[in-house]
């Protein structure tokens, strides 16, 4: 997914090869990650697509099925991956992910700790942010989730950037060997306050911690725990509102209803034309946008804090 090796940097223009991970795009709400495998086929409502037809095409191409149906083949990105990955747990979405990475001041070369791994949605973006030389250590309590996450990172080509551990961070804390090495720590745990002392131990001086919690009571307890050795404790919430775009024109009352208005007394008509200095509206634009009604109303609270520099 990431052009870690600088010789591969212009990855999008190279052609699709056997073994590549591609995002098959049907519609904005219907995508799928597929590893190209010569001899395999993809079957969907549009027909049967032979993988072999895809090899040699550029990313971004439209490819056709036996029935003439088509899909697009896109190069994978962490954002597209977030839309196609299998949900082993509730995942973080782009607004929270983007904000976390910027607020944690994660740049190439950083060493970042995460718990829990969950579905690996955030992990993938963390890996992108620390690439090419940094590293993400991510931990999950569940053996099976960790195994699945490792498989995913193998598939997306991030294994060199990510190490997945199985560990109860709330109970045991992060491994001692990472003490004082982390630039940033991210916690998505039911009882984050239990992990905060360990997170503080892992962080370099001035390093930043983020805790994600859905309930405000968790935030209160977390913030309280942070106060002893962290400063700059701030809590945010971020949501994304999307807009729908349509082409169309509102009924121009004056134009469309001319017939019925013809019966209006002439006097008034004149008044409205002469008396006011109003310019005629040119009518609304043909492309109109308005917010979508349905939206996620809450994901969670993000609490950030910076380790006090006491040395």
């Amino acid at each position: 997914m990431l052009p870690i090796d600088s010789t591969k940097k212009l990855s999008f223009t190279r052609c699709i090869r056997d073994g590549d991970l591609v995002i098959v795009y049907e519609r904005y709400d219907n995508m799928k990650a597929i590893t190209v495998c010569d001899g395999s086929v993809l079957e969907n409502r549009f027909g049967v697509f032979k993988h072999s037809d895809w090899v040699g095409k550029q990313f971004g191409s439209k490819v056709f099925s036996n029935k003439g149906g088509f899909v697009y083949l896109l190069a994978p990105t962490p954002e597209l991956w977030t839309l196609v990955l299998s949900h082993r747990t509730q995942i973080l979405y782009i607004a929270d992910i983007s904000f976390v990475i910027m607020f944690l001041e994660i740049v190439p070369g950083c060493l970042v700790l995460e718990s829990g791994t969950g579905s690996g949605s955030l992990t993938t973006s963390l890996a992108r942010a620390v690439a090419p030389k940094g590293h993400v250590y991510t931990f999950d309590f569940h053996e099976q989730r960790a195994v699945s996450a490792r498989e995913d990172f193998e598939k997306t080509g991030l294994s060199n950037l990510v190490t997945v551990g199985v560990r109860d961070i709330q109970g045991e804390g992060f491994p001692d060997e990472l003490s004082g090495m982390a630039d940033s720590v991210f916690l998505d745990l039911p009882q984050p306050w239990l992990a905060i002392p360990s997170a503080g131990k892992m962080l370099k001086q001035d390093g930043i911690l983020c805790s994600f919690s859905p309930c405000i009571e968790q935030v209160e307890r977390t913030s309280e725990t942070m106060r002893s050795s962290f400063t700059d404790i701030r809590t945010f919430e971020i949501l994304l509102r999307t807009y729908e775009v349509r082409e169309g024109k509102l009924d121009d009352f004056q134009g469309d209803e001319a017939g019925s208005l013809g019966s209006l007394p002439r006097k008034r008509r004149q008044r409205s034309n002469e008396g006011s200095n109003v310019q005629e509206s040119t009518g609304p634009p043909t492309v109109m946008a308005r917010p979508c009604s349905e939206a996620k109303g809450h994901t969670g609270y993000l609490t950030f804090a910076r380790l006090k520099c006491l040395s």
Partner: peptide, 12 residues
Amino acid sequence: SRTHPCMQMNAF
């Protein structure tokens, strides 16, 4: 211990 904004909202 479970207070938060509702997960679905009418956004407009």
